[in-house]
Design a protein around this nucleic acid. Structure first.
Length: 341
DNA sequence: GATTCGTGGTG
DNA sequence: TCACCAAGAAT
């Protein structure tokens, strides 16, 4: 890999930040100011989620819960409803716990260092560094997918970013490069660079403001970075979803409080080995297919007669289930059901 | 330390 | 259709 001397580092900082001052994405709604609450909410939403997806969620969230106190005292159902469709729902629950910790335990006084911020639920090394650098000016690299991608190319870093140990390797390499005068802007500039010129696919390094620092581009091996071992494909699972009607209501079942879609309401789902195991009146020729990161669900809707209620089951009217935060897969099932009828 | 956690976009 | 990705953290 490449190494930069102090002069190169200073030149890189200036080049990067000059470009950022001209072409940074200052219109993004979470960049209106640097209040830690706004930065926290946006950073949690942006975990593993695209900017364009987050924008409307962020604006709705901040409009309804404009302060950390508002979030701390809100009913959890309200927070989850605001999060509906974003996925990774433990983020929403942890975000509220973090707000409650700041308000109730710290009396509204935010932790300012990256180290202390990591004590907040849902705030790990990246998010803590992002908040501490952007809101409080701490000189730390916010090592995320963008920094992996950008610096692996600039410096030809061969560490496998799928490996947990690589985070420290990148952190140690990037830490002395972060501009101590403008650490928050430095981190955000790398994000903007990673979403414009130094993208995952089809990078445009020839036009990049930092092309002169890009060793992988110089050597024609840009497509080899970042190094990342591939993950396994989703496991296929078959389910039978029970459609049970009673007085205009539908039977729902609350999922366990841990695991996939923890605590969310869906139609009663029973895993089956094959379509032969379906019991009842099959409603569709094709199943509802829903793909998670590591699971692929094929769900057959089956109409069944009412039976005794399990303690995790309830009949819900349309008004009731529409007010709940439901996972995408359940919305698909409902849509399929109403399409059929 | 490998696995688990959602969803929508894209080539 | 499908693999892979997108501002990671918790377990």
């Amino acid at each position: 890999m490449e190494t930069w001397n102090e002069q190169t580092i200073k030149k890189f900082r200036k080049t990067l930040l000059d470009w950022y001052d001209d072409e940074g994405r200052f219109h993004l709604p979470w960049r209106v100011n640097h209040e830690p609450y706004r930065v926290l909410v946006s950073e949690i939403m942006l975990q593993q989620t695209r900017v364009d997806t987050v924008i409307p969620y962020f604006e709705r969230f901040m409009k309804q819960l404009p302060t950390v106190e508002d979030l701390a005292k809100a009913p959890e159902e309200v927070v989850l409803k605001l999060w509906e469709g974003l996925g990774y729902y433990s983020r929403a629950r942890n975000l509220q716990k973090a707000a409650q910790f700041v308000v109730n335990e710290l009396h509204g006084s935010w932790p300012e260092s990256s180290e202390d911020l990591q004590s907040l639920p849902g705030v790990g090394p990246y998010t803590a560094a992002a908040i501490s650098s952007i809101s409080f000016g701490e000189t730390v690299p916010a090592v995320d997918g963008n920094q992996y991608r950008v610096f692996s190319r600039l410096l030809k870093i061969d560490a496998d970013i799928a490996d947990t140990k690589s985070r420290k390797i990148f952190y140690d390499i990037i830490a002395p490069i972060v501009d101590p005068e403008r650490p928050g802007d430095f981190n955000q500039a790398i994000m903007d660079l990673g979403s414009s010129y130094m993208t995952t696919k089809n990078p445009n390094s020839a036009q990049s403001p930092v092309r002169q620092f890009n060793a992988a581009y110089r050597d024609g091996v840009e497509d080899q970075y970042p190094v990342k071992t591939k993950k396994q494909r989703p496991i296929k699972q078959l389910f039978m979803a029970s459609v049970v009607k009673k007085n205009g209501q539908l039977l729902f079942e609350k999922r366990p409080n841990n695991g996939l879609l923890a605590g969310f309401w869906t139609f009663p789902l029973k895993q089956i080995d094959s379509v032969e195991d379906l019991v009842g009146e099959q409603l569709n020729i094709k199943p509802v297919v829903h793909i998670f990161t590591h699971r692929r669900w094929e769900i057959w809707l089956v109409e069944q007669k009412a039976d005794n209620l399990q303690d995790n089951q309830r009949y819900l009217s349309p008004e009731e289930w529409q007010s709940l935060s439901l996972p995408k897969v359940q919305h698909k099932l409902l849509e399929k059901l109403y399409d059929t009828e």
